[in-house]
Amino acid sequence: MAAGDMSAPLPGTDYEHATSLGIANDKLGIWSFIGSECLFFGALISTYLLYVGRTGDSALTPATIFDIPFTSASTFILLMSSLGMVLALAAIQAGEMRKFRTWIMATALMGATFLAGQFYEFTVFVAEGFTLATSPFSSSFFVLTGFHGFHVALGILMLLSMWAASMMGRLPQQLHTTVENIGLYWHFVDIVWIIIFTVVYLIPAATAAPVAG
């Protein structure tokens, strides 16, 4: 923490409303929260990595259970929803409200598609006998991806609320910082999935796969 560079605004400015650092309170708040969430997902991913080899008596290992092409598709959709989010932000910053609503809805729909995919994936797993209680591997997998899914669901709820607020004319252009903050949350959920895709799905499925030939 360097102290010198955070000088307070000069006296004589309208300091009743200005902030000491010249940055918005809510944005600083959301970034602090995201910093905290790094430790949350760090703990969940670490548990998974620790338990990925502990499949117990079950034959259901990363190599046998994961459907990589399917997960790749849903990963791609979530990644593209991040693009939708930034385009929505650019639209509201430019004051193009119709475009904003289109992109925010597209983002929410892509998020919902991802979530539906996850729901389908879980259903298939459970049908194959891979449940919360199967092994430490299954427990850590479901709790990690489940909490990620919960974060996505919260994000979708916020995106849809913004869409509805905009439809009712209650999200004027000045509130683009709100869109930006919710966007930050959305992108964070996305980068967590970027890590999960490789670390939870691809690498374990590859390392445990039968050697070709």
Partner: peptide, 28 residues
């Protein structure tokens, strides 16, 4: 958040039979 994760895992363990910390079922 670290204790948060541990507490969720404990809750899933005792309530929904996951296998995080119970050595009898492979947990650590």
């Amino acid at each position: 958040p670290v204790i948060g994760v541990a507490l969720w895992q404990l809750m899933f363990d005792v309530r929904y039979s996951t296998n995080f910390f119970n050595p009898a079922t492979g947990g650590d």
